[in-house]
Design a binder for these strands. Sequence first.
DNA 1: GTAGGGTTAG
Length: 493
Amino acid sequence: MDVGTKLHASIITTGLQTFPNTYLRNAVLQMYAACGCVLSARKVFNEIPLSYKDTVDWTTLMGCYARGGLPCGLIDKTRRIFNEMKEKSLVSWTVLLGGSGEMGCFENARLLFDEMPDRNKVASTIMTAAYIENGLTKEAFGLLREMVFELNFVALCSWLSACAQSGNVIVGKWVHVYALKMMKNEIDIMVETALINMYAKCGRISDAFRVFNVMPRRNVVTWNAMLSGLAMQGKGDTVLDLFAQMIREVKPDDVTFTAVLSVCSHSGLVDQGRHFFRTLESTYGIKPSIEHYSCVVDLLGRAGHLEEAESIIRGMTIHPNEVVLVSLLTACSVHKNLELGECLMKELVQMYPDNTEYHVLLSNMYSLAGKNDKANSIRVVLKSRGVKKVPGTSSIHVGGQIHCFSAGDKLHPQSQDIYMMLDEMIRKIRLAGYVPDTACQKFSGSDGGECYDYGQEEKEHALFSHSEKLAVCFGLLSTRAAVFNRYAYGINT
DNA sequence: GTAGGGTTAG
């Protein structure tokens, strides 16, 4: 960059600006754009006479504003430049699309993609990534299917991400075979990392290791994918062993510690987690991020060290977000600390006045503490707003199809069998000593959000029809052990 | 000369 700036200065001092040498100016514009110097790029752009500005110059300037890492809001500027352009190229459309996708304006990106007069695989890959990021895996697969005959490394990565997120290991394996054929066993490191992530997220740890172990080169992202996959499966000891190996090969980064701290939390490795968090900056030179705070609060909260977790939150250099506060709130609920819980909920209700879940939780907490007046006043507010809660869903991949369930729904063709299985499972877990915690079920039901107090039986029913349980029961009925299950539970289809 | 890819907490 320094060399570039000096070069620009010398261009100006030699007086070239008085004889508009547009090739030179265009090159300077490219240079500033490539370095992310928005203001300098804008200045040079303004210096180019209007008749000399071509579509590439306009698009380059758009790219400056649209590129990631810039503060939000610059997408408006990108669009303004786009609107000013007389002739828009496919690349200009793509820059705007990429900017919208990156800055979280998903709906805008979708509209743009539909509006585009022409598309190519770059635009489709951007849109696929946006779909995946927003959890719309089905739409992502739809686009990828259109691109099936022009797949390259980039598209394969997007495809693998979609597989990882939807748990579709069958398509993921197909992509693996395709990649091996396409690249004659010399797979790109990013595709290999995406493969590790896909296998690990789909629960195929040994397949993930098989890819990982034969890789000729591994970087920090590869290690992170492996560690995060193991962390997700709760393999605490394996993660810590692998971490020790990793630091001999590459320098760990912030993502590494998100995986390490998260697995410490889920495996109850409190001392190790605490140690990693404390030495994050001094030993590894990493400033704790919101994700690290979230993990360590979760770690301490789960273990019942509520005060320590709270003092970490209060001492945070960045503002705690919803995830961090909810982690501690959940711990308060588990360890029955009403005082701190109430305090956190008030904070959450203030921070997110439109999120009714916190109002519901706060109201329940007041009820439990016998403060019915306070509980009722919140209920009145909720009723007057007529709020509806969007039901959560769980899905399971069986026989090449994704089966999706929401709490209490009976839409699945095998619904009757699923509920029979559910009854049987509940009978078994009750016998094993499970007592449902119905305190938190006061409002949330399967009816889409009406606010009222359930009777004990209804509360238990709502809890037992939870979407995840339905998906698991369907899995038990439909996978390899299905014959045994049907026999054992007397279910016939 | 301008556009697209892999890893992140609950």
